[in-house]
Design a protein around this nucleic acid. Structure first.
Length: 226
DNA sequence: CAACCGATGTGCT
DNA sequence: GCACATCGGTTGA
């Protein structure tokens, strides 16, 4: 792609209500997890490809070295979790259960970040269906029925599949300054519309397993579980 | 409904 | 080995 084209669509992105690095500079990890609710995660897989958008309806905070459920617990710092130590707003993608990915954004706090757990699909839904179907075929060759809208991205790995996110593309990318993944200001979510619960799938994290670090939009049908 | 379980890579112990 | 920030199909009440 020529520099001219690149700057053209970068400006397009910038002209929308794009969330900047100030957003991440001005919030703690837990504040970031809450403030991301209602915002819109945007994805473009190729320069002229369709733009995929989904409203963030569920997040979890992982606060760093003191958090026994966090990948950086006890100061563990490896090549894989390095994005959590990079500037707030850096994408961190890791593989789980051998075949799925989870998508996080680093936040304020050393080794801290926010896991995105569910999106409400807004734009590019046909493309998301295709991406989900492609991912599912690896497991079940016969199944190609379209999914119900609320099943497209109501889970941390489902949203990665729906947006074509993996460790080779968005990992380490700065979400405040990228042409392929960015955030836009969405609907305002008031404090009374945010539900806090313990995080999902955490079993061996001692007292930290029960901390109310999962946040979701109260009446959303698109969260992973209630 | 819920409970169980297979697929599967990576990083511990 | 074993656990894992999961998903989706199957089994059985």
């Amino acid at each position: 792609m020529s520099g001219e084209n690149r700057s053209h669509y970068f400006i397009q992105n910038q002209s929308l209500n794009r969330i900047s690095s100030d957003f991440f500079a001005n919030h703690s990890c837990i504040e970031t997890a809450k403030a991301l609710l209602g915002q819109v995660l945007c994805r473009r897989l190729s320069p002229k490809g369709p733009i995929l958008k989904g409203k963030i309806v569920e997040t979890e905070s992982y606060t760093g070295a003191e958090d026994e459920a966090c990948n950086t617990f006890n100061g563990r710092r490896t090549e894989a979790n390095e994005p959590l130590f990079m500037s707030a707003g850096t994408c961190y993608v890791y593989m789980t259960y051998g075949m799925y990915y989870c998508f996080n954004i680093s936040s304020q706090g050393l080794g801290a970040g926010v896991l995105l757990r569910a999106l409400e699909p807004l734009e590019g839904i046909d493309c998301m269906q295709e991406l989900r179907a492609k991912a599912r075929k690896r497991v079940d060759q016969s199944n190609s029925k379209p999914l119900m809208l609320k099943m497209l991205s109501n889970g941390p790995s489902k949203l990665c599949m729906a947006l074509g996110i993996n460790k080779n593309n968005t990992n380490t990318v700065d979400i405040t300054n990228s042409d392929e993944i960015w955030l836009e200001t969405g609907s305002h979510v008031s404090e009374t519309d945010i539900v806090s619960t313990k995080r999902v799938g955490i079993s061996r994290a001692g007292l930290w397993a029960d901390k109310p670090f999962r946040f979701y939009i109260k009446d959303s049908e698109f969260v992973s579980q209630k």
